[in-house]
């Protein structure tokens, strides 16, 4: 009975030593769920700070008190600061008489082109006229890959084959889209490592030259600690290499391959924490239908389960 009672510290003012053991366990739990180490550290640190000096008011164990605080912190991180309504944005841009342009970027093989096709499908379902711009002019089969999707969806691809300047093709495609009465131009880009300077420069050139309506970063839910570095570096280079007076940064995140990770959903936290930008879409499979919105509540549940 005594040991049962001692788990409760009603009215106690919490000190670091009270919450540390519980937080340590929770932090390891987050890392098992694939939250990057740095992010797990920072989250738990801020939770610890917020708890020290607090009075435990109701009948509750330190563990559940700490867990509730972490739940709250995670929810706060993952909840978008403002809602993103792409369809509404497209509508308002169309009133200005030009097409809405979205750039998909990210490291190699994460699902940029597949996501682009899923987004195209979704837009078509919303009765929008969509043009696909094939601006991965490097990777073998990249252009043909988009043609296959476009054919399946009854869409057109604007392409200039391989080896050409991606930024210029994007510019031409947007102009072509404007002339052709398209509502949206979806711009596919080649995958690139965040530390590859020439390739990062060429992406930033594309973004600077076209100043698109949305720059979406595509990242896979499988990624571990590199998530933080990827987003930090993409954002940093978008600013450093920009030729715009107000440089662009990543406007939103697409989290792909969500169907391959069971409950190890931590990459979502790493990505959103690093950028402060929302997860606009979640990829949950390899068909056009497999595009979802992010459900913050169930994400947090998976993380703390």
């Amino acid at each position: 009975l005594l040991s049962f009672v001692s788990g409760f510290v009603v009215g106690k003012t919490l000190e670091a030593s009270d919450v540390e053991p519980a937080l340590h366990k929770l932090k390891e739990g987050l890392m098992v769920k694939n939250v990057a180490r740095d992010i797990a550290d920072k989250l738990c640190e801020s939770v610890q700070k917020s708890l020290i000096g607090k009075k435990m008011e109701s009948f509750t164990t330190v563990n559940s008190f700490v867990k509730a605080a972490l739940d709250e912190a995670l929810t706060k991180v993952l909840t978008p600061k403002q809602s993103v309504d792409i369809l509404a944005e497209i509508k308002s841009v169309r009133q200005k008489g030009r097409p809405y342009a979205i750039v998909f970027c990210g490291v190699n093989g994460v699902g940029k082109s597949t996501t682009l096709s899923k987004v195209a499908y979704w837009l078509v379902q919303n009765n929008l006229k969509v043009l696909i711009a094939a601006c991965d002019t490097f990777r073998s089969g990249a252009v043909e890959q988009l043609h296959v999707h476009a054919e399946n969806l009854g869409l057109q691809v604007y392409d200039k084959g391989y080896g050409k300047d991606a930024a210029a093709i994007a510019k031409d495609a947007v102009r072509y889209g404007g002339e052709g009465g398209y509502d949206v131009v979806l711009i596919d880009t080649a995958g690139r490592m965040q530390g590859n300077e020439p390739l990062m420069r060429s992406l930033v050139k594309l973004v600077s030259l076209n100043n698109p309506d949305k720059v979406l970063f595509v990242g896979e839910a499988l990624v571990g600690n590199d998530a933080v570095d990827q987003l930090t570096e993409f954002n940093k280079k978008l600013v450093d290499f920009s030729t715009l007076s107000t440089p662009r940064v990543i406007d939103g995140i697409v989290l792909t391959k969500f169907d391959t990770i069971d409950d190890k959903v931590g990459a979502a936290v790493s990505m959103v924490y690093t950028t402060g930008q929302p997860i606009v879409f979640v990829g949950t499979g390899q068909t056009y239908n497999d595009l979802r919105r992010c459900n913050v509540e169930s994400l947090v549940d998976s993380l703390l389960k």
């Binding site: 597949t114 990777r139 073998s140 990249a142 252009v143 043909e144 890959q145 296959v148």
Partner: peptide, 16 residues
């Protein structure tokens, strides 16, 4: 036979 453009990709790489 699943991924869009898979054969083109392999073909172009193999040709190079």
């Amino acid at each position: 036979t699943f991924r869009a453009g898979a054969f083109d990709q392999l073909k172009q790489n193999a040709t190079k």
